[in-house]
Amino acid sequence: MKNVHRILGICLLTATINTAYGCELTLKRTNKAPIIAEAIVNEPIEKPKSNTVKIALLLDTSNSMDGLINQAKSQLWDIVNKFTHAKCGNGSRPNLEIALYQYGNDNLSSREGYIQQVLDFSTDLDEISEKLFSLTTNGGEEYCGQVIHTSLKQLDWGKNPDHLKMIFIAGNEPFTQGKLNYKDAITNAIEKDVVINTIFCGNYDQGVQTDWKKGATLTGGEYMAIDHNRRVVHIETPYDDIIIKLNGKLNKTYISYGSRGAMKREQQMVQDENAMELEEAVAVKRAVSKSSRMYKNSSWDLVDAMDDKDFDISAIEKEQLPTELQDKSTSEIARYIETKKRERSDIQKEIQELNTKRDAFIAKNQKENATGELENAMLEAIKKQAEKKNYKWE
């Protein structure tokens, strides 16, 4: 009889797990299953906290890859803006974390296989932009299998089955190079529920012949070939200059605090300048990202910090505040922050409304296949794989 109860308990637990996970479902409660689970399960199961998209970019930074790096700098904001509109079937919005690796560069350690983790998984969009702009190219050996293996080993991918976990690896040398067989890395990826997407910078058939396609399809990922040196022709719209001016006003709503406040505010300004130097359209896309829910800076900005339920403005020491707030009372500071919050909300709303008109203008005037090669490749793969996890797009 005990065995019967045990079997029934396992069946109930399995049913509970199957209904608890999945982007479109919510966790169901039962009276009996949790008690049985405590008795028969040794390993705790990671329960979903919030849906998260984890993307690791593995970029070849050898001599011929300047075009790829420039496209990545530009298209970062397209990826961010894409997920601004992503939604699960249960109405929740996913978080976005991006990690960055470079490989195939002679400046990197030969002991590490000419591989470097440039950035761990991060939600800090300014930091991600800064790291992309820090990349430089130099000749080297490109070991695709090893950089995939390294990213799987070093990064915290988690065990939550709801999370969308993707690697995008881009390069132009055979996928088979290096001592570590890429198929072993792929086995590891499958175990971690990570989908590998490969982007060959060159002729499609050449990429197939050098195993770039196999490297993707073995995990259910997408294989793409792009012209990484193709210059993206952005369409100017009547809304670009207005959005850029609004971005300047948006920056004035940030109230830096703490030991990192001044540095992070400077970083924000520098990344605005980097985007503008690359191209005005990139600066516009960045401004749109900054007006979205994806751009949060509670670690150094008082307006975002006040949205955190555990944040206590009275606990901040006076010297950690900007000069203009150091002689004010807690209630005066709170009112000042609330004023800036309303200003920011109004500006963000205006940018989003203008961007809707901008998108419509571009759709009407854009020639077929006029968008960036890397942008097309990544967004197509992201949307397809996100839909398998029950993400929807507004």
Rank of each mutant, 00 (worst) to 15 (best):
G178I: 06
L164W: 01
R231E: 12
H234N: 05
M166G: 01
H228T: 00
C201P: 02
D162Y: 06
I226L: 09
Y204T: 08
M166W: 00
K192A: 07
L152K: 14
I199W: 14
K192Q: 15
K165P: 09
P174K: 07
K153I: 02
C144Y: 14
L180Q: 09
I235C: 00
F133M: 05
D162M: 03
G178R: 02
E173F: 05
P161H: 12
T187C: 04
F168W: 05
T210Y: 13
G221D: 04
T217K: 15
F200T: 04
G207T: 09
Y239K: 09
N160R: 07
N188C: 13
V208I: 15
K183C: 04
D193H: 11
M166K: 02
N188A: 14
L152V: 09
L218G: 00
A170R: 01
F133N: 13
T150P: 03
I226N: 02
T123L: 02
V195H: 08
N188M: 13
A189V: 11
Y204S: 06
D162K: 04
V232P: 00
I235S: 02
P174E: 05
T217G: 09
I190E: 12
I128R: 03
I148F: 11
E142W: 10
G139H: 13
N160I: 08
V195L: 11
G178E: 13
L218T: 09
H163S: 15
V147I: 09
A216M: 10
G140D: 13
D156H: 07
P174R: 06
L164P: 05
V118Q: 10
I186L: 15
E130K: 09
M166H: 00
Q117A: 05
G140A: 11
L155H: 10
G145Y: 14
M224C: 13
K131N: 14
G215N: 10
N172G: 14
F175S: 04
L132C: 09
A216L: 13
E127V: 03
A170C: 14
W212C: 05
D211A: 08
T137V: 14
G178W: 14
T137E: 06
T136F: 03
V194P: 14
L125Y: 06
R231K: 15
I167H: 00
I148T: 07
